[in-house]
Structure formats: structure tokens, C-alpha cells
């Protein structure tokens, strides 16, 4: 029945709707460059969402854990085989994404008989020099974007825009790791609040499709509200933070921050998150 072009377009449209629905409960991911490298932050429940891919590559994901695992493995395989056959400096995020997993994700998305990957992926690459740091994001349909400075994954484009705008607006020329962590968590809170807001808006719309819902586009809450939100959500979950550190000894630059690191780095208002 999908042979007709119109049906196919319709099926792909349905797929988008279905996939968008899947990310609603997801936790945003924030990646931010700071003076010593790149920081990745998310709050996870049960399965980790930040991973080491190669010497200078890190992965952050949203979506179904099994799909994320599959893609993580293909990234790991490609990276290590390439690093062995050529050299570690030939393993670049952009090659892995553009010629590696993005086509696979796109194909799965468009083959309407088969299940798509329920994932959004962020690949952070630590360059040899700070100017070469790169951040790549891939959507569930295989579209990818390459940016510098900061990148986020969120449930909806609106939430993503809010987070990015906040990060861009707040970022001074150089951030220390403490500052970066604080800022990344605030951006995370903006994304997470935006998800909640959108959901309650939707509920309100279905309940009374008349008035009131338009006021949703609220102003950005202040720092205390954002921290309070992080505290309330992260309390029962795991605050996951990882860094790609330019000055780290040895070839592997990835390090996930341990509770001891976090309690040293987090602002006072968020110390309670670590104790959990």
C-alpha cells in the first residue's frame, strides 16, 4: 500500500509524529566547550546516556537505550578499525557521522516497513586545538548538524532553540569547568522545563481547546528556579557529566566526572544532587 508516492509521504509523516512522541519523557543533553575541553551533561534514569567513543570522541544520546547501544557499537567499531588501520588522528567525528551512522539512521527512518531508530545523537570531538573542537547532532531521520561552542539534544525543536539561545546568550569568552557545569545544568533545566510546559499545554489544549494556552511562551526563569528544578529532578536520578580534557595524560581524553569531582565543582545550591 506504500507503493504510491502519496502513501509513502503520509507514512513518513506518521513516523515523525510517532517518533516525536517517543522523546517526550527524554532528558535533554547539553554539550559545551570550556577552557580545558568539552563538557557533556545530562540527567539519566537507569541507563547511562554519555559514552566514550574514541580517544577524542564522546557520545551523548536521547531515546531508546537499545537503539542507542546499536549505534554506539557501530561508532565504536568504525572508530577503532579506522584508528588501527590508519591512525588515531584519522578518526574524526564528522567522518563517523556523515559517512557512518547518519546514512544508516536515514535508511531505517525511510524504510517504512521496518522499525526506525528512536534516537537523537550528539557527538563531541576534541580537536588538537580549541578552534578545531566540533559538535555534531543527528536527528532520528538522519539529518545532522555541525556546530561549535555548544550543542544540545531536546525533545522538541522549541525546547532545543530555547536551550541553545540561553547558552549563546550566557556564554562568556572563556568558561572554567565550574562555570561550564553550572551553565550546562541551567540550560538542561530550561530544556527539561520546556518539555514539561509543552506537555501540560497539550493537555490543556485537549481539555479546553479554547483560551489560555497561548501564554505558554513564558520568559526564561531565573537562576534559582532553574537550580531548584535540577535539584528536584536529579534527586532521584543520576547526574551524568563527562569531559574531554585537552590536558589529560595519555591518548584517551574522555573522563566521566565522579561524585567527588562533582561535589567540588557544583554550586552550593546543587550539592544535594551528588549525595544521591
Amino acid at each position: 500500500m506504500y507503493e504510491e508516492p502519496y502513501r509513502w509521504v503520509e507514512a513518513v509523516g506518521n513516523r515523525r509524529q510517532y517518533l516525536d512522541e517517543q522523546f517526550k519523557q527524554g532528558s535533554p543533553v547539553v554539550a559545551l566547550t570550556y577552557e580545558g575541553g568539552i563538557l557533556l551533561v545530562t540527567v539519566s534514569k537507569g541507563t547511562p546516556k554519555l559514552y566514550e567513543i574514541y580517544d577524542r570522541l564522546a557520545l551523548g544520546g536521547m531515546g531508546h537505550p537499545t537503539d542507542l547501544e546499536k549505534l554506539r557499537f557501530s561508532l565504536l567499531e568504525m572508530a577503532h578499525v579506522e584508528g588501527f588501520n590508519r591512525s588515531p588522528s584519522d578518526v574524526t567525528g564528522s567522518r563517523l557521522v556523515k559517512y557512518g551512522i547518519a546514512p544508516v539512521i536515514k535508511q531505517a527512518f525511510e524504510e517504512v516497513y521496518k522499525a526506525p531508530f528512536i534516537v537523537r545523537i550528539l557527538v563531541a570531538e576534541l580537536g588538537q586545538k580549541p578552534e578545531k573542537d566540533a559538535l555534531l547532532t543527528i536527528n532520528y531521520d538522519g539529518t545532522f548538524e555541525e556546530t561549535t561552542g555548544c550543542a544540545v539534544l531536546a525533545a522538541t525543536p522549541a525546547a532545543q532553540t530555547k536551550m541553545t539561545a540561553y547558552l549563546k546568550e550566557q556564554t562568556p569568552a572563556t568558561l572554567s569547568l565550574e562555570q561550564a557545569l553550572d551553565l550546562a545544568l541551567r540550560a538542561w533545566a530550561i530544556g527539561s522545563l520546556a518539555h514539561q510546559q509543552e506537555e501540560s499545554d497539550q493537555r490543556a489544549e485537549t481539555e479546553s481547546s479554547a483560551s489560555g494556552a497561548g501564554a505558554a511562551a513564558a520568559a526564561i526563569p531565573n537562576v534559582d528556579v532553574l537550580r531548584e528544578h535540577v535539584r528536584s529532578i536529579a534527586g532521584g536520578r543520576t547526574l551524568e557529566c563527562a569531559v574531554l580534557e585537552r590536558q589529560a595524560p595519555g591518548t584517551s581524553k574522555y573522563r566521566s566526572l565522579k561524585p567527588a569531582d562533582l561535589s567540588r565543582l557544583l554550586p552550593k545550591a546543587l550539592q544535594s544532587v551528588v549525595a544521591n
Binding site: 567513543i53 580517544d55 577503532h80 584508528g83 588501527f84 584517551s252
Partner: peptide, 16 residues
């Protein structure tokens, strides 16, 4: 040595 180096890294990164 190159094989071993990559093997240990690969194991650590895949198996966490």
C-alpha cells in the same frame, strides 16, 4: 602492541 593497545581500549569502551 598496536593490536593490544586498540584491543584494551575497545574492550573498555564497549564493555564499560
Amino acid at each position: 602492541v598496536r593490536v593490544l593497545e586498540h584491543s584494551f581500549k575497545y574492550y573498555r569502551r564497549t564493555q564499560l
